[in-house]
């Protein structure tokens, strides 16, 4: 949990952003489907924000607006005051907002780890010596330094995704967007990636985590719940979990620990239903039983 309250500078501001996708109907006509519609949100600098929702709720579409890969048809997106719709800003925006995608295999540009990480700084035209330093630092930050000379293909999903994060870090962004970066990973890999994300957040990085795993939002500062291209709820993780009726409607579920705590409370146990720690919960149950 970082300092969201005492540092109120807005990193990314989305104002009424709307995006439609073209749909090619079977009868040959072209229709449109809502990607996102009228999205308003502010992401504060240094915060750890989660965007959750079921498949097809528009969370990835929204993520792609955050660094100008997609542009809103209506409304606007500003990154540190720079409008993504202005082509002249795009380069600067992408320097500020690093993005890591879902499939680690599809974002590797080189067959050697350090060369892949160097891709970003090379694009920025940074002198060779500084690239080496940046690559070293980025790999160190994600704990993959010993793999610098290896080929990414032979590594685990979690390791590959950490390399992808290093690739984004080497550009030295202010914001890191993880666009379902944990979706294809096993539990171990997900843990690795989340640990790195939280570590970076502690060092001051603004992190936007897009996911459909509710366990992952536990330690976030602020959660946005999306459904059908709209933001249907937002608040701290506990506020979100408490509204189980809405979560049900959008096809999500509170993490098991939270669910269990809520059930125990309903059954008359005196437990804190805002805890997410299984041990605290177990302790509380024991005390109740004694």
């Amino acid at each position: 949990m970082s300092n969201i309250n005492n540092q109120k500078q807005i990193a990314i501001s989305v104002q009424g952003a709307t995006h439609y996708y073209k749909v090619y109907n079977e009868d040959g006509t072209v229709g449109k489907a809502i990607g996102i519609e009228g999205i308003d949100l502010d992401i504060y600098q240094g915060s750890f924000v989660a965007l959750v929702g079921h498949n097809g709720c528009g969370k990835s579409t929204l993520a792609k607006h955050l660094n100008g890969i997609l542009l809103p048809a209506m409304g606007k997106v500003e990154v540190f005051g720079l409008d993504t719709a202005n082509k002249a800003n795009i380069f600067e925006i992408r320097k500020q907002v690093g993005m890591v995608f879902q499939n680690p295999d599809n974002q590797m540009v080189a067959s050697i780890v350090e060369e892949d990480v160097a891709f970003g700084p090379e694009n920025l035209g940074i002198p060779q010596k500084e690239i080496v330093e940046r690559v070293h630092k980025a790999l160190e930050q994600v704990g993959m330094l010993e793999f610098a000379k290896r080929t990414p293909h032979k590594l685990s999903g979690g390791q590959k995704q950490r390399i992808a994060i290093a690739g984004a870090l080497a550009i030295q962004p202010q914001v890191l967007v993880l666009d379902e970066s944990t979706a294809m990973l096993d539990p171990q890999g997900r843990k690795e990636v989340l640990e790195v994300a939280h570590q970076l957040n502690k060092q001051g990085m603004t992190v936007v985590l897009i996911t459909h795993f509710m366990e992952e939002v536990l330690d976030c500062d602020h959660v946005f719940v999306m459904s059908g291209g709209h933001i249907v709820d937002q608040g701290t993780p506990m506020q979100i979990f408490a509204n189980s009726k809405l979560l049900d409607e959008v096809g999500l579920k509170a993490p098991r620990t939270v669910e269990l705590a809520q059930k125990l409370k309903n059954a008359g146990f005196d437990v804190d239903d805002t805890t997410t720690d299984a041990k605290i919960l177990g302790g509380a149950v024991c005390q109740n039983l004694q």
Partner: peptide, 23 residues
Amino acid sequence: RAEELANAMNSRCYEGATNRTQM
């Protein structure tokens, strides 16, 4: 794959050969 890769490359400030350096 190609589309995802293109997005990933764009996100990492790829703008073709202009002003590129090499590690």
